[in-house]
């Protein structure tokens, strides 16, 4: 494809990214570095601040759960799920904006989202994190890494691998326009299990890969091998998702009050 077409594709995906994802990397980094000039996030660093900060956490509550009877850890976990379900909706809208995606076989669209969405969410989490903690709840809260590590097992094991990945991923210094293309590449993976018609998916991905390669050359001229380094991250991501799904399976078996959001259940069932 012509360079002009590849640049147009990059612009289109960046615009869709800005449209569907409320907390951009630029905004998150401004909050984390204290450069917003507005509200600083509420810091959750222990159980007391968790309870104080719950008023900021999340927007929608899960009905049918008696909040009085739940311990804070589990209640927080349910809030995270509710936000994750909303994030899946945002990623779905972004996927639909990728040129050619909605023309794919509908079963394949479902498969691409089922296998790609958690990988996308983990990549999108990276800009919200630094080595000390993570922004949550649209940047209104900063939750410390130490606090997450102090939760009881297996909750304490959930976020640590994401921190380790994110701290390394952030050294690549992608910006939001790079991220938009990388997310599209992840979604358009032609090797997901059960795809019916791989060829058109691979063709779409190839075009987005060309656009990403050009974007990185123009946007990061001094960063050698950035394109190759970024593609290698896709292998790490699959392992993180596999481990995450296994942890959720463990939670389902061990936690009596465990409630898994129906959308997340759909995605994780028979995933890996």
């Amino acid at each position: 494809p012509e360079a002009a077409d590849l640049r147009a594709l990059a612009r289109h995906l960046y615009e869709a990214y800005l449209k569907y994802f409320p907390l951009t990397k630029a905004k998150a980094r401004a909050i984390l570095s204290g450069k917003t000039g507005e509200k600083v996030p509420f810091v959750i660093h222990d159980m007391k601040s968790l309870m104080e900060g719950e008023q900021f956490i999340n927007c929608r509550q899960i009905p049918s759960l008696d909040h009085q009877q739940q311990v804070s850890t589990l209640r927080f976990f349910h809030s995270c799920q509710s936000r994750s379900a909303e994030a899946v909706r945002e990623v779905t809208e972004f996927a639909k904006s990728i040129p050619g995606f909605i023309d794919l076989d509908l079963n394949d669209q479902v498969t691409l989202l089922k296998y790609g969405v958690i990988e996308v969410l983990i990549i999108m989490m990276s800009p919200l994190m630094n080595k000390d903690g993570t922004l949550i709840s649209y940047g209104q809260i900063f939750m410390t890494r130490e606090f997450l590590k102090s939760l009881r097992k297996p909750f304490c094991q959930m976020m640590e691998p994401k921190f380790e990945f994110s701290v390394k991923f952030n050294t690549l210094e992608l910006d939001d326009s790079d991220m938009a293309l990388f997310l599209a590449v992840i979604i358009l993976s032609g090797d997901r299990p059960g795809l019916l018609n791989v060829k058109p998916i691979e063709q779409l991905q190839e075009t987005v890969l060309h656009s990403l390669e050009l974007q990185l050359k123009l946007n990061h001229p001094d960063s050698l091998q950035l394109f190759a380094k970024l593609l290698q991250k896709m292998t790490d991501l699959r392992q993180i998702v596999t481990d995450h799904v296994h942890l959720i399976e463990l939670l389902k078996k061990t936690e009596v009050d465990m409630f898994l959001h129906p959308l997340l259940q759909e995605i994780m069932k028979d995933l890996y």
Partner: peptide, 21 residues
């Protein structure tokens, strides 16, 4: 596959109104 993933399917099909999550 569509049957096993009703909410995902619905999200893909509804271009304007998001399903009640």
């Amino acid at each position: 596959l569509k049957e096993k993933h009703k909410i995902l399917h619905q999200l893909l099909q509804n271009s304007t109104s998001p399903v009640d999550l």
